[in-house]
């Protein structure tokens, strides 16, 4: 378990590429800069997909954890 407290949580479990990336981006677009988004997903490809999108969009991946086949990402949205 992480000790990061997210401001928003997106449950994307069961979705496959490209949906986790698309929905994570959408969720990031909705929150304010500096806020933290937690994303839970089960698509193994997202382990590399999501960090790529986060880096390219200038956001920050704080932490990724994996437990029982669920990957949890904590993403800090860049300041506008």
């Amino acid at each position: 378990m992480s000790d990061i407290t997210p401001d928003e949580v997106a449950d994307l479990k069961g979705l496959n590429c490209p949906m986790p990336v698309l929905k994570t981006k959408k969720a990031l677009d909705k929150i304010e800069g500096g806020k933290i988004l937690q994303v839970d997903l089960t698509d193994a490809g997202s382990k590399s997909d999501l960090p790529a999108m986060i880096k390219r969009t200038g956001n920050e991946l704080l932490e990724m954890t994996e437990a029982d086949g669920v990957y949890t990402f904590f993403i800090k949205k860049k300041l506008a």
């Binding site: 490209p18 990336v21 994570t24 981006k25 999108m53 390219r56 969009t57 200038g58």
Partner: peptide
């Protein structure tokens, strides 16, 4: 469509 939507999500 997958590449285009993903690229757009990556600010491309």
């Amino acid at each position: 469509l997958i590449l285009a939507s993903t690229a757009a999500a990556m600010d491309v």
